[in-house]
Design a protein around this nucleic acid. Structure first.
Lengths: 188, 188, 188, 188
DNA sequence: CATGAATGAGTTTTCATTCAT
DNA sequence: TATGAATGAAAACTCATTCAT
């Protein structure tokens, strides 16, 4: 029973955060959405922070899964890099609630060491995935190029959260790929 | 007296948010830091949300001021664009507390319409400043290039908030300027 | 099976109270220490209060057993009284957890009628045991002397619970026996 | 206002503990008895533990005051010792609620370091007050005699809390003074 | 203008107890 | 018997907000 309940709570937490567009959600609300009492939520997670931590972990796990799936079909280094970029904006995996929650956890990571640790892992992973693909393509510039691409990915991400009329995911991918094209044509 | 009190509260709010690395700060703490009672804080602002809103406005105003100062000395379109990029990372204007608060308000804007409005204005302004500089430099691509540059700026910004060992402001500027160089050399 | 389970719970309750140095222990913790579920604990005892009551009874029973054993070897009235005094501080019977629990139940007896009844029986028993031994030794003063001795026993007991650097059990016994000596030499 | 409120809360806490004959009383109840909201109680004391600590301190302070007043009129060493004994049972100072609370805090001191510190001070004070009076009276035996007298005082105290039909305060004083008489007549 | 006293609602958390299996 | 899932009540604590002074 425990894994079922825990999963229900994690999903409910993401949904609740998504609905409130903020981390100001109560355990009671989360538990109610998950169809159980707040007492049970505490029984399984011990504290609200642990529920949130599990939710953050889930979101990043989903992201990682999407990226890995995209990488599996990539045969060339360049395809790998493009897969990471495209995968990062694949809306199949990121329903709106998860995107909102991601943003909230990003901010929360500044004051919450556990969430920060999680976010740093995400950062590291994005960077190293990019570097691995870029190394054969750009001589000695892989680290810098990866850093720039990562910044573009995160940057488009958060800008989208603000601009209802903003760029679509697809446009973001197009612009990042244009940058990549240019780098690969002329690595300076 | 009123403007002095209001300003003290706004600065205290930013400092308090910076110290807590979160918006979970109480009006009492803010008021105490500003050297007055919580009652007076309410007297001047009506509510906590209004204090926060004023703080967000202040941060963006400071940013805008820095950018405008940088633009004033720029004589060519290219210099204008470079001024915006460099100005965005000038640490003279962004002390750590303001940077932290900016990130928190960014997240907060998702659930707070007033803050959202403010953030959208910032977005618009950054975009149009860039477009204005870029239009003479890139044929018809100004909007897209501006979008990409803005994403890079915001992206480097938030990534720095997570990576203690991350890129310095200076490195971020270098990388963005490299991208700009490349765009201007070969606008595709 | 039932008596084994009940006994395990009682021993676990005493141990848990000893570890917490307070009656603020949960049924779950007690049950876990006894190697069973909290549900089973309720099945056997009906309520937490009943578990506590059984624990208090157990502690007093152990005390009584020790005293009776000490009395069995006593051949003279004086030996009987000395046996009660020495037996009360025999650490063979009172492991630290039981001493702590005794103190907690002592306080608890003020608000819990069932525990109070138990404690009063202990009081009566101590008093009548002493009186029985003292009657042949002190003319008509047995009741008062017993009362004084009982107060000394309980008094040393609780003072030890506070003073880490306090008197040892042995010293307490020596001082009480000195008092007894004096009384018997000169019963006034 | 603060000292008035704090005092009201301390008195209410003692009264509430006395009424419940246990430390299981809620801050709300205490606050209500003191005529204010629970929020205000927290505002002034920070936590329930601090309220309790202040209550324990108050009880011991009252005790100390009574003892000091009794000592003031004592002209001889023996009168000093007798004043301490009689003062300890003077019901003018110890209304029932305080007696009950004292017993509860005694038990509580086992798990609460702050209360323990307080209780140890009380212990030390009782011991040293007695020793100071006894030294001129008993050669080199002052420490032991003081220890015994202190045990008798505490012992009669807690036994009274259990025995509705038990000894009165006056009888306790008589018995302790008899012991003192005997010691002083024949210090062994 | 200014204080800080005061409230009360809201949140997290704990647990005894019950009950379906 | 035995489990542990599940509840819900109760309590501590925090804070925005109000208001008398």
């Amino acid at each position: 029973m425990e894994p079922i309940r825990r999963d229900a709570l994690v999903q409910a937490a993401i949904a609740e955060i998504g609905a409130a567009r903020s981390l100001d959600v109560s355990v009671s609300k989360i538990a109610k959405r998950a169809g159980m009492s707040s007492g049970l939520a505490h029984h399984y997670f011990g504290s609200k922070d642990q529920i949130f931590l599990a939710a953050a972990r889930e979101i990043l796990r989903d992201y990682q899964t999407t990226i890995l799936a995209a990488l599996k079909t990539a045969r060339t280094p360049r395809a790998r890099v493009e897969a990471i970029i495209a995968g990062s904006f694949e809306d199949a995996c990121f329903e709106p609630a998860a995107v909102t929650a991601w943003m909230q956890f990003y901010a929360n990571s500044q004051s919450n060491p556990d969430v920060q640790k999680l976010m740093r892992i995400y950062h590291q992973r994005l960077r190293s995935n990019l570097v691995f693909g870029l190394r054969p393509l750009v001589n000695g510039k892989a680290a810098d190029v990866a850093e720039t691409l990562a910044a573009m990915i995160d940057g488009f991400y958060i800008r989208q959260s603000l601009t209802a009329d903003g760029l679509s995911n697809r446009q973001a991918v197009v612009l990042i790929l244009q940058h990549l094209d240019q780098i690969l044509r002329d690595p300076q």
